[in-house]
Amino acid sequence: MKFTDSRIFQIALGFLVPILLLGAWQYASVTGYAAPNLLPPLTRIYGTFTDLLASGELGEHLWITLYRVFAGFVAGLAVALVLGILNGYFRFFRYLLDPMLQALRNIPSMAWVPLFILWLGIYETSKITLIAIGVFFPVYLNLLTGIISVDRKLIEVGWVHGYRGFRLIWHFFLPATLPSLVGGMRSGLSMGWMFVVAAEIMGASKGLGFLMTDGQTTGRPAIIMTSLILFAIFGKLTDMVMVWLGSKLLYWQTDLVTGKQQSA
């Protein structure tokens, strides 16, 4: 195998550009090319990060944000599963509910905030509901499309071999739909991260989004950048978890690519 084909090389290559950019950044701010009150040096950001970490403040912000994303994701996923399956398998429900859902999908995330605060208060419920809505749509749409576009030829195989109802769903529809569901969950999660920022910027006293607005109002760009970097890192980490989960769910695709055999 060539060195350029190795996994380590591929991973290292992904780090190359970020590291170069960080180096340029540090150089620009230290030498004064960039105003430090706009672009603070990396070292200062690191200092801010360790200070916030040491005081326990950062952990608290991070924790509450992760909690909101997770809770919103689970709630949005659950509703999307129910409605996606219902509208996917039963045309009656699809004609009944899908047009309304498609219309609601066009409401921008921020537009929900005033209503949710009015209805659900300023605490967690309104924020988690907002995130759940963000998660809901991509999962729902992918699942619905997945179910509708399942290869009819494979379903005929099921019919011909006497599969009906639940057995047909379990052995044929579900595995055939799983790739689109996993894709939907991944975009749902990234929507969850977008909506958590929306929720926290609009009104929160904790969380990475709050930390960011706090940095803005108090004129501390290092804090804004610390939270930005944390969003990037944790967004990526949770996405990796999702990809891993997807590869477990879609084991047959993974095995096919790597050429491994299924242990019988």
Partner: peptide, 14 residues
């Protein structure tokens, strides 16, 4: 039982 032109095997089953 039907044998189709394309084998129509399920990719998620061995």
């Amino acid at each position: 039982r039907v044998l189709f032109q394309d084998a129509r095997l399920l990719p998620w089953k061995s």
